[in-house]
């Protein structure tokens, strides 16, 4: 598994842990109340579970398993774009979640913008890898 995928999947697992924790607090509070501010965790919970956990996991796995290039120095493509998408995604999700918790709508917008840039960057990187053949198989004469 390439290093970028390791970082993305591990980050997604961290978000999963945090998201499950927030969700558990909210669900508990629906039955037996704990803290009055628990409801503020709902929007951060949604943000973390959709973008931090699910989408980032998909990005990490996609980077590892989509067809690779046989005729480039880096068979994974423009990996630097992948690292940019990693930093943008994680800073965006963290900022959005924190801003939603404190209801700071302008910072929510900034966070969402960072996530958008992350997705755009990742898409530009991964798009050419969505192709019929890759790696060793592409080199074989039929």
């Amino acid at each position: 598994m390439p290093k970028l995928s390791v970082w993305m999947v591990k980050a997604s697992l961290v978000y999963m842990g945090i998201g499950f924790f927030f969700g558990s607090l909210i669900l508990h509070h629906k039955g037996i109340q704990i803290y009055p501010w628990t409801w503020k965790l709902l929007n951060p919970h949604i943000e973390i579970m959709i973008f931090g956990w699910t989408i980032q996991l998909v990005m990490g796995v996609a980077f590892a398993i989509l067809p690779r290039f046989s005729d480039r120095d880096n068979r994974y493509g423009a990996e630097y774009l992948g690292w940019w998408s990693f930093y943008l995604m994680n800073s965006g999700v963290a900022l959005t979640a924190l801003a939603e918790w404190h209801v700071m709508i302008h910072l929510v917008f900034v966070g969402r913008l960072l996530v958008l840039l992350a997705i755009l960057t990742f898409t530009i990187m991964i798009f050419p890898r969505v192709k019929p053949l890759g790696g060793f198989a592409a080199n074989q004469q039929s």
Partner: peptide, 8 residues
């Protein structure tokens, strides 16, 4: 519901 939250 509280139990469910802990199990999850």
């Amino acid at each position: 519901l509280a139990l469910a939250s802990m199990l999850l």
